[in-house]
Amino acid sequence: MTMSKLNKVLMISLLVICTLWLVVPFTMAVLWSLVDPSQPWTADKLLPPAMSFYRWIDMWQNSSLKSALFTSYALAPSAAVLCLLLAAPTAFALGRFKFPGREVAKTLCLLPLVVPPFITSIFFSSVLFQLGFTGWRFGAILFAHAVLFLPYAIRILTVSFEQVRQEHIDAARDLGASHWARFRVAYLPALKPGIFAALLIVFIQSIEEFAIAFIVGSPSIVTIPTLLFSALGQDFVRPNAAVLSLILVVPNVILMLVLEWLLKSANPTLSSGKG
């Protein structure tokens, strides 16, 4: 077998695997969401016998989907911003100062990620309850998300702060720049990619987080994951779950594309100097 033939075979197998991995589940979700309740989609049929947007309309009108969407999309960006603000001082210290035990401190910051998220969530919730911190449930979930996803934000921002070059800060200072002007001209260009990346990761983590949103929020606060789990759980209706998961996926994909584009515009050679 020649090399090019082998390449071709490998290429085709890769495409097949990708298709199976990505396209099939997605198509299945789309098909399931379109099943009309008049005729069930049984295992002997390749396609649903009757298709309509009934489930979409029904879910939109008769479930807590609207409020769940609102809650999730209010929660995630707020958590991302709050998390970034909380992470910034630690990341600044870890990225800009040399002190004994810095590497240990960096590793310690990552440690919470090793523990299974459900466990941290349960314990964090119990802390919130014990502190009586649950009067405003939305706020409690927001705070919990911002704190739990700190390791991601701290790690990413630490690397960004390390990229800031001291001579740019010094040059700005020498030219008479105030603190704010120094931040804008020396720090911000180097931090930009890290800020976007941290926001994106915390946003996605928060949108998908179930345990805390469920324990702290239910029954008054419904987010997309808690709604999804209830659709999958006690009253398991596969077409409804399909509608929900599609709704959960689409905005995230759009957001990812937007942020990728933003990251590209924050050209790393521009922040690193001579290029």
Partner: peptide
């Protein structure tokens, strides 16, 4: 500065 320290994004 020895390394010029020009602001790369400006």
């Amino acid at each position: 500065f020895q390394s010029y320290a020009l602001f790369p994004h400006l």
